[in-house]
Nucleic acid binder design. Sequence first.
RNA 1: GGCCCCAUCGUCUAGUCUGGUCCAGGACAUCACCCUUUCAAGGUGAAGACACGGGUUCGAAUCCCGUUGGGGUCACCA
Length: 561
Amino acid sequence: MSSNTSPVITRFAPSPTGHLHIGGARTALFAWAYARRHGGVFVLRIEDTDQARSSEESTRGILQDLAWLDILWDEGPEFASEGGKASGGDPRGVGPFSQSQRLDLYNAHMERLIDAGRAYHAFESPEELDEKRKASLAAGRQHRYDRAALEVPEQERKRRAAAGEPHVVRFRVPDGAITLTDEVLGEVTLAPGEVDDFIIRKRDGFPTYHFAVVVDDELMGVTHVIRGQEHLNNTPRHVALQEALGFRVPKFAHLPLIFSADGSKMSKRDKDKAARDACKRAGVEGPPATNISADEFAAWMKDNKRQLQTEQLAAMAESMGLELPEIDVEDFRAAGYLPDVVCNYISLLGWSPPAEAGKDIEKFDMAFLCKWFELGRIGKTNARFDRNKLLAFNNDAIGAMSDEEFADRWREWCARYEPQLPERLGADRFAMLAAALRPRTKTLREAAAGAGFALLPDDAIEFDAKAVEKTLKKNDGEGLAVLRELKPLLEALPTFDPAPIHTVLETYAAEKGLGMGKIAQPLRVALTGGTVSPPIDATVAVLGREAVVGRIERCVREIGG
RNA sequence: GGCCCCAUCGUCUAGUCUGGUCCAGGACAUCACCCUUUCAAGGUGAAGACACGGGUUCGAAUCCCGUUGGGGUCACCA
């Protein structure tokens, strides 16, 4: 970086009121990439000024999700990820990074504003304001705060506030139009009177978002504010505040929003919707999970706006065999997507690499993103999230891996979501299965599902009726005959590895003048109960001699009668 | 509803700023065929868009205006 330009400082500032949403992840990714590209600093700040909704647990979850995506912050809460990489810290001494710990800082600047007459105490109750709002609405007027508090003389306002009377602090918004320049959208102007005297300190003494953001961005030296477009209308407030406080005005870049496939804004509600629709389709009348009360369920079914807890929805989905749409970063992790693929895909939502980077490049890694990311190439139009494309990318990434790497990644996934799977399989069979499954699996979860046949006890295999008919009974039971002849051949094999198994099957097929399909399919049904499994030699090898012989015997006995 | 933002294949997008090289390129999805030991994957090919209407210009996807459509936002939430 040249020495005459100030370093780039970006930040991601989530409020810890829930899980990290995939849209939030993209915001973080862009802010991170921009800082990386310019050799700058990426700060993580926790916006927990809403005491009622913020939680420590959410904060931990968000840090974990970011670390999983490998979006690591230079400054912010200290965190050691599972991979052992440390993040956070405060080399410049601009912390703490939780707003709830910065109250003194906010109050100091707030007092300056009040003393300068740019902000004032207001004593109306929330109920009072609510009534005024309703009255405006009923009269068909746009509601704006009427500055009623200013009718109380200044000295009296200060006296009452000092005496401890409950109050808020409002910013006295300057009269003129407010214009800001956005790096993505260009100039945006709000006419005079569009912004009213908004609250900057709540009754509970905490600053509102608007105030805290402005103070923190200044104190932390943030040069580029990168955030979602839903904040665009807030930005004039921030600019007005920055000017009143004598702060630098950072550059702004408002990102287009991410929508669900149906065109609505992607939100946790999508899960409620999917679950509710499923309940309606199935005609469910009582709560399908134990962590939901009957009343709660009934109210939720009736009211499309009502939301259940993530855990409740998960329990419901589990009991109904339902797949909820992925919304949170954690959802994608659980669904078996690779973090680098998720980053690759979401970076394409609203951004594309420049031509200098290469022609029509879509698949790239984090280093590429950091090398080429620029605000000027962020689009203005909202994007729909296309799970199919993400899935295709994930599939391609898995396809490009070595068997060993896939096994490692799958093992890590299993440790979190299916810990019994590698334990019961053992290292050798796990590796063998991983190699067999890798070319035909799109997600790590899918691989786990495909491993089911190897996990079941031999006598628990359920033979699919259609498969039995088609591959075993048809043509006077030619499939069963194959099984009977194959059993001793397989049993006699000196080593039970894919290669010799393959040779035996091929030799047998040649002798009988049969196609591989006539042999592999009956065997597959006998061993797995169905017609879908990894290549037959791998399927046989993974199960091992004992299980193979046992399963064939049982199949012949039960189907052959 | 007020205000603000946006508008290229079904979807994500390249191209728009610096009009002509664009009868618009890529990717995902779709369809067809090939391959095949199931399921996938893979290969080849096809179909598919400049929202509409006015300007400006020799020439507009690209510039201007309007219409329509979509979205965001209107809290003592962030």
